[in-house]
Amino acid sequence: MTLSLVFEQILNGLQSGIMLFLMAAGLTLIFGVMGLINLAHGSLYMVGAFCAAAMAGWTGSFALGLVAALAGAAAAGALIELVVIRRLYARDHLDQVLATFALILIFSEGTRWVFGSFPLYLDVPEALSGPVSLPGGISYPLYRLAIIGVGLAVAAGLFWLIGQTRVGVRIRAGENDREMIAALGVDIDRLYTFVFALGAALAGLAGALVGAIQSVQVGMGEPVLILAFVVIVIGGIGSIKGALVGALLVGLTETLGSVFLPVFFKLFMAPAAATQAGASLSSMAIYILMAGVLVWKPSGLFGSRG
């Protein structure tokens, strides 16, 4: 095991964590502001990936693909908020779960009907293709570094939006006392639609960026959704800072665990058994992390008790 390998896997963990942050940021905003459990958030991730792949395949422009992903996912989010979600705010969480699970099925079959059952592929833009040399003689894909940079820029933009703008004030107020801001004249329905569309756009952006690394296919959002829920539980529901820290912790834990736990077990176990034990424990590591955080802070790292 070399130092360059460790550094490379740390970068992989950061890239994975940044993608989880884009998913979890929208999810934690929606849950924190609206009190809504949205299982269809992974479907919006899938919509963004398919919109990007289709637009990039049609125009040959990766940038236009990203624009299509943002616009398509935001439009889909605003539409389902207006048509379906708006009727669920006053309902029990079980009703929200059932309704948004139905949306998963609708989105999956609708996507299959529009794009077909075969995976689509989104090529890495030529300007970001190939590796880049880093200090220490490390060669790392430029596109993955670009993903980290984009994710950090989006995080900075979200911190500015939530903390420094009038819209952010309304979002934070809506999280704390939605009845009061409605009484003060804020259009709560329009605010909810904006927050839902913003969360959907972030999920769509994540899907588009990941689509250039893996294939774009129906159902690709559900595994990521599970990890996003883990992230917001660790970070604290409604906290953008918590979503960022939780996503980085989950990304690093999952990536480093899958690589280095088998190596650790090989020190005192047979190679085949060590590989199996390491793979099993690495898949459990993020849930062990979540359990440890909840024992220490039941509201999450940056969650508020309420």
Rank of each mutant, 00 (worst) to 15 (best):
S4Q: 13
F7T: 12
G13T: 07
G13S: 13
L20Q: 09
F21G: 02
F21E: 08
L22F: 05
I37N: 03
N38W: 03
S43K: 03
Y45Q: 01
Y45V: 09
F50A: 04
A53L: 07
A56L: 12
G57M: 07
S61C: 07
F62T: 01
L64N: 00
L64K: 06
L70P: 05
A74K: 03
A75P: 04
A78H: 00
I80R: 05
V84K: 09
L88E: 05
A90L: 13
D92E: 15
D95L: 13
Q96M: 07
I104F: 05
T111P: 02
R112Y: 04
G116E: 02
P119F: 03
S129V: 02
P135V: 02
P135A: 07
G136S: 12
L142E: 10
Y143R: 10
Y143I: 12
A146S: 08
L152D: 04
L152A: 13
A155G: 07
A156N: 06
L158S: 06
G163Y: 10
A173K: 04
A183F: 14
V186L: 04
F196G: 02
F196V: 00
A197N: 05
L198I: 10
L202P: 00
G204C: 06
A212L: 11
G219T: 08
M220D: 09
G221D: 11
I226S: 12
L227K: 10
V231L: 02
I232D: 00
G238D: 08
V245W: 04
G251K: 07
L252F: 07
E254P: 04
S258Q: 12
S258C: 00
F268H: 11
T275P: 09
S280H: 06
L281Q: 01
S283Y: 15
I288P: 13
M290P: 01
V293H: 01
S299K: 15
